[in-house]
Structure formats: structure tokens, C-alpha cells
Design a protein around this nucleic acid. Structure first.
Length: 271
DNA sequence: ACTGGCTCCTGAGGGC
DNA sequence: TGCCCTCAGGAGCCAG
């Protein structure tokens, strides 16, 4: 599953191949995704230059000339790869953006990903409009953020993956950040003191930065844009370790459900 | 305004 | 060996 560090890794890898190049065409073979690929999208982007490749939360934004943009999400199982335009397709290949000598192709078996387009400031799009601050920004997690966290009653784990308090934190990093901050995932936001909220902000940024530094090759389905599975493996402290010993205190890591999502924590280290 | 539950989808993995 | 069931996950949507 591509999470924020994986999406950022993909963005950085694609950027030099795409920016400054012209889209020759957009080929769509299987438009059925979370949102169907708009039928008129191919016509509206053909011939335009890619001026920038940006990321917001787990969304990739292809900025095109004249204020047009493409919004890409990889969902659960989406993979982007650089291929020869029109080269052999496999099951679950959905579309490719063709430049003169290569193409970016989406492969997505579970079809939670999507490709949409628009014009003007992409941040005004409903999918992006309510997103919270970027956790990798240097000013993330200050007193204002702590206050926003403390204004909510939901379990802190739910708040972290909600997207409005912090953008792009998924299920895995939420558990890991809470372990680092020593906070029980079920604790209501409003019952976290300001000092601990600030620690949590730092923990979120730190865990994401470390994953990014490893090239983001942390998860089962993840592939680099050339198809390599990646050689690294992040050393998770709690995620997926139910029944195993906490590396800090030896207590057994537990798995619970919060908001229909698996959540892992150490009942001794996290209060 | 918040919160929590449900939903989309396919493949992997466990149990029998 | 093979079938069936459960689970995994992002994030929109909706009901309470």
C-alpha cells in the first residue's frame, strides 16, 4: 500500500522523467476505478506540457500548462510505472499517460485508485479542500495543531487517519506514531495534554521522515516505478506485531479495532 | 459539528 | 489439492 512516504518517493522518481515533457496522449483501457476516468479527459490533456509534479497528502498532482491538472490517487494497490508507450499490458492495467518516448502507467487490481482532471487551483477540488496540514512541512505540529487535536473527542487513532487534522497519515503510520509518542490509540483527543500533543506531532513527522529516507519501500504491494520491489524493510515497532514482544518493554503487543481498522499498540508503553 | 459505521474491490492467507 | 471464509486498506458518504 502506498502511503505518504511511498507516494513522495514515487513523485521524486517520476519528476525528472515528466516535468517539461509534453503529453502526446492519454490511453484508457479500463476506466472503472473508484471514480471512473472521465471520458473527455484524454481530449483535454493531449498536447499539453507537464509543468510540475506535486503531492498533497497521498494525492499526486500533475500540473499542466494553462492551469490544467491531473489528480492521481493510488488507493490500496495502485502502482505507477514508467513503460514504453503501448507495450504489453496485463490484467488490471487501467491507463497510461504517453509522452514521446515513455509513458506512466497505472496498474491497480483493487481499483481504489483514480485519475481525475480539472482546471484552476487544484486545492479547491472537494477531495483536497478539507485536507489538514502536511506533516513533512517544517512548521507542522505546533501549538495550534495541538489545540486542534485537543478540540476533538474521537479516539486519537481515528483523528490521525481522518485527514483533516493531518494530511496523508494512514493506518500503519498512525499506529507507529502513537507508539513513539506513548499515547494509547483509544485515548480521546481532548484527553491528551498539550505537551503530549506536541510530542505526537513530532512523532508523526519523525516516523514519516524515516520511512521516506528509506525510500518508502516499506509495504507489501509497493513497487518502485521501474517495478523493483525495493530492498528495504522498515522496522515496525507495533504494526503487524500482535502477540510479539514490545521492543521497548517486553510486554505483548495487542491488536484492537478502532473505527473498523486494525490498530496495534503496547498496553504498557502507551497510556 | 462530530462521530462512527458502511461501502467500494480483489487477492492473500488460513482452516478444513 | 481445493474451496470458502475473512481480512486488508483509503477515504467518501451517510445516519444518528
Amino acid at each position: 500500500m502506498p502511503e505518504l512516504p511511498e507516494v513522495e518517493t514515487i513523485r521524486r522518481a517520476l519528476e525528472p522523467h515528466l516535468v517539461g515533457h509534453r503529453i502526446c496522449s492519454l490511453a484508457v483501457w479500463q476506466p472503472r476505478l473508484r471514480y471512473p476516468v472521465p471520458p473527455d479527459l484524454a481530449g483535454s490533456v493531449s498536447g499539453l506540457h507537464i509543468t510540475a509534479l506535486a503531492r498533497r497528502a497521498k494525492y499526486l498532482i500533475f500540473h499542466l500548462e494553462g492551469g490544467t491538472w491531473l489528480l492521481v490517487h493510488l488507493g490500496m494497490s495502485g502502482r505507477l510505472s514508467l513503460v514504453e508507450p503501448g507495450s504489453g499490458r496485463t490484467l488490471h492495467d487501467h491507463w497510461e499517460i504517453r509522452l514521446s518516448h515513455q509513458a506512466v502507467r497505472l496498474h491497480d487490481p483493487r481499483r481504489f485508485g483514480f485519475l481525475l482532471g480539472g482546471h484552476g487551483p487544484p486545492g479547491l477540488h472537494p477531495l483536497l479542500a478539507d485536507l489538514g496540514p502536511e506533516p513533512l512541512e517544517p512548521d507542522f505540529g505546533g501549538p495550534e495543531w495541538a489545540q486542534a487535536l485537543r478540540a476533538r473527542a474521537a479516539p486519537v487513532k481515528s483523528l490521525l487517519i481522518d485527514g483533516r487534522l493531518v494530511a496523508g497519515v494512514g493506518n500503519i503510520y498512525a499506529s507507529e506514531a502513537l507508539f513513539r509518542a506513548g499515547i494509547n490509540p483509544r485515548r480521546p483527543g481532548r484527553r491528551i495534554g498539550t505537551a503530549r500533543a506536541l510530542i505526537l506531532g513530532t512523532a508523526i513527522r519523525t516516523v514519516l521522515e524515516e520511512a521516506l529516507a528509506e525510500g518508502g519501500s516499506t509495504l507489501r504491494d509497493y513497487r518502485h516505478i521501474n517495478g523493483d520491489p525495493g530492498g528495504f524493510r522498515v522496522h515496525w515497532q507495533v504494526y503487524g506485531r500482535a502477540g510479539e514482544a514490545c521492543r521497548a518493554c517486553g510486554e505483548t503487543i495487542r491488536r484492537i479495532r478502532i473505527g473498523q481498522r486494525s490498530t496495534f499498540f503496547c498496553p504498557c508503553c502507551q497510556r
